[in-house]
Amino acid sequence: MSIIVDKNTRLVVQGITGQEGTFHTKKMIEYGTRVVAGVTPGKGGQKFDGIPVFNAVRDAVRDADANAAAIFVPPSFAADAIMEATEAGVSLVVCLTEGIPTLDMITVRQYMKEKKTLLIGPNTAGIISPGKCKIGVMAGYIHKEGRIGVISRSGTLTYEVVDQLTKRDIGQSTCIGIGGDPIVGLKYLDLLPMFENDKNTDAVVMIGEIGGSAEEDAAAYHRDHMKKPLVAFIAGVTAPPGRRMGHAGAIVSRGVGDAASKMRVLEEAGITVVKDPAGIGETLEAVLGK
């Protein structure tokens, strides 16, 4: 099993005819994702590799029965694309776009507050339930079907961790990148309960990084509500304060959000914290073996 996406996910790709959209749509189809529609305003009625293209997400929902949206549109249009998909009634929006202005994302989040649609990202590698469905830009072949949930703020670091797991023959139920921006949709705190309730997930790996307090919130949830083991890594021990480390969200703001304090809070909540980024797979294997 898995969470959020599976064989029943019917995807509409916003920006399907753009360079990124085209490339990754092909990769998603190769992986087995059911891409049922694309949206590019002005190109409605055309076909993309046999997939119908619409002018608006609402048309894709009505005519192609899409229930999830992937967004590959440039940063200046991406916030609007998220709201369009939400308004059209899909149950999931995955926004891959990097570089959306923070104030735009504030508007998006407030708009989505009263809606049922889930948002993953922006600035994420996406979500994958190995063997079932991939919405995103991650390399599919490094994943393996299995029973470990993975939640991360970072793209390539997630590949690294997944690779360590797969090479130890430990498969994954679902892997989610929550995104590296200060304002994102689903966070650890929203996803941990889903993994806790998923009877086909045995344990969760959480890959955090400096900045904000999402990891601390997750720690409190795990301590109070979770029975499944959680293994965590926090990137950014060596990050200097006040500097943006690639991800817009990865700034240690004046003593808040540094790696050491995050690790301390996680350990106090009974979570296994891995210090060595090369030892995450090994540690999880040990935890599962107990």
Binding site: G155, L157, Y159, G180, A235, G246, P277
Partner: peptide
């Protein structure tokens, strides 16, 4: 990737 870059520095 920014996350892997930070993890590499940590390594």
């Amino acid at each position: 990737g920014a996350g892997l870059a930070m993890a590499t520095m940590d390594l």
